[in-house]
């Protein structure tokens, strides 16, 4: 009886969808569209929106896995804003972002412009591959190897500096130097990716504008400043936005090379979040840190886009 009642209704839906009218065709197209984007939407819900909602909820609880979560209202946030280690971690992260992103963008752009000018195709391929190779290496492996290289007493970096008469530098144990070591490692590992973005941007610059600039007498620095950089500005915006977001989530290199030390000198926000959640089993507090970091990333990205109206040239 039930199936007999459902059958006509199902038939009506199928007829409505498969109707051979303009409306029906539109419905079929829409349905097909939804079917195509369904995997992305489901992935977004399950792996991004879902965990974000869970993190938001968890930030109001005290939970250590073993015992049921206990609602603590805003306690995690009040602890966060009075915890000096959180401010240290944010300061370190911002310093690392500034140091790393500035170096990344300048070096990657310079390399992209140089490689683009190479007339020899094999040489161009060689440099593209060489610069990109470190991106393919495991962050952990890179950090361990460079950790040995940066060792004050046994590392090869200080050995060669010593040959130049430069005294030993405590790359990983001096609070004033350690961020530079971490930053240099990160720049080396991520340079290839930013380089490829810039190379793509440089390769697609309109040749007629560049040639016109040349005819008008714009060469060298003048051509770079007044023609190339404005034309590249959308690429620069994209590269800086993605690099800043990535670097605000700094983790691998300092975690493996220094474990955040000495003291908290190289501890980043994501390290602090990880250590609180998974080390100290303070999942609520870790979630609160994650949420504040998310807000900061959102704010920084928003500011970048707002400021981009003044300097990014779309045409």
């Amino acid at each position: 009886m039930v199936s007999q009642a459902i059958q006509p209704k199902r038939n009506r839906i199928i007829q409505w969808l498969a109707a051979d009218t303009m409306e029906g065709i539109r419905r079929q197209r829409a349905l097909l569209g939804y079917l195509f984007i369904a995997p992305s939407i489901i992935g977004l819900l399950v792996f991004i929106i879902g965990p974000m909602i869970a993190t938001f909820g968890l930030s109001f609880y005290k939970w250590n896995v073993f015992r049921p979560p206990e609602f603590v209202n805003f306690e995690n946030f009040s602890r966060l804003f009075s915890d000096p280690r959180v401010f240290t971690a944010f300061r370190n992260t911002f310093l690392l972002v500034v140091m790393t992103v500035v170096m990344l963008e300048i070096i990657a752009l310079a390399l992209a412009l140089s490689v683009h000018r190479l007339a020899s195709r094999p040489l161009s391929y060689f440099f593209r591959t060489s610069y990109f190779l470190p991106v393919l290496l495991s962050g952990a492996a890179v950090a361990v190897t460079l950790g040995y290289m940066f060792h004050r007493d046994f590392g090869v970096i200080n050995y060669y500096l010593g040959l130049l008469g430069i005294p030993k530098i405590s790359w990983l144990t001096d609070s004033n130097v350690v961020l530079w070591s971490v930053s240099l490692t990160t720049v080396w590992r991520n340079l290839g990716f930013t380089f490829i973005i810039y190379l793509g941007g440089v390769s697609s610059l309109p040749t007629e504008i560049l040639e016109a600039a040349q005819v008008d007498g714009a060469y060298g620095w003048r051509r770079l400043k007044s023609v190339v950089l404005p034309l590249l500005s959308p690429t620069i915006l994209f590269a800086t936005v993605t690099d800043i977001i990535k670097m605000l989530q700094f983790f691998d290199e300092p975690f493996i090379m220094t474990r955040g030390g000495p003291g908290d000198a190289s501890r980043t926000v994501v390290m602090l979040m990880y250590e609180n959640a998974f080390g100290n089993l303070a999942f609520g507090y870790g979630s609160a840190i994650a949420l504040v970091l998310f807000a900061v990333i959102l704010l920084v990205t928003g500011i970048q886009f707002a400021l981009s109206r003044r300097w990014v040239f779309y045409s």
């Binding site: 609070s175 030390g261 000495p262 003291g263 908290d264 000198a265 080390g279 100290n280």
Partner: peptide, 22 residues
């Protein structure tokens, strides 16, 4: 029971003493 957090405190301050920050 809370050895992970304890170890973090121990190694953090040890690092500051041996590098001369404290």
């Amino acid at each position: 029971v809370f050895s992970i957090e304890m170890t973090d405190i121990y190694t953090r301050f040890t690092g500051l003493a041996v590098n001369g920050d404290m």
